[in-house]
């Protein structure tokens, strides 16, 4: 019988993300990625959440097992000087669409300010 190779992709909506705490988000992402899936977040993580994601990813790395994550997102749009930003009170940085996958399966081919090109392998 022929094996069909594939990769599961999970798209998580901004609404769902907004309902979760920082640790719930990080656990959701890491558990999914450690199973070999690709996760796409409609809205990216806050800087503090990114910092904790890096830290917890490091704790999960094991020899010949999980080797970490590959993650891509666009630079934060700087709304600092905008009229709306001033109205909303100070700096409001907008986090953006983010793709996260296992480091050994997701490769970034090209990355520019406004274009991300990635490649996913199904072999683990």
């Amino acid at each position: 019988m022929e094996m069909i190779q594939g990769v599961q992709i999970d798209l998580i909506s901004a609404e769902r993300l907004d309902r979760l705490t920082a640790m719930e988000k990080i656990r959701l992402i890491l558990d999914d990625v450690m199973e070999g899936n690709i996760v796409i977040l409609e809205k990216g993580l806050a800087p503090d959440e990114q910092s904790k994601l890096i830290e917890i990813t490091m704790r999960e790395i094991a020899p010949d097992g999980f080797s970490g994550i590959e993650m891509e997102t666009y630079p934060i749009k700087d709304a600092q000087n905008g009229f709306l930003a001033k109205l909303l009170g100070g700096k409001r940085s907008e986090t953006r669409l983010t793709v996260i996958g296992p480091a050994n399966q997701l490769r970034t081919l090209k990355k520019e300010k406004d274009l991300i090109s990635a490649w996913v392998s199904s072999s683990r």
């Binding site: 806050a46 800087p47 503090d48 990114q50 910092s51 890096i54 590959e70 993650m71 891509e72 997102t73 630079p75 934060i76 940085s93 970034t108 990355k111 520019e112 300010k113």
Partner: peptide, 14 residues
């Protein structure tokens, strides 16, 4: 434009 740089500079700015 590596993701680590964008993330870290974002974290530092925040």
């Amino acid at each position: 434009f590596q993701q680590v740089n964008i993330m870290l500079v974002g974290i530092i700015e925040s």
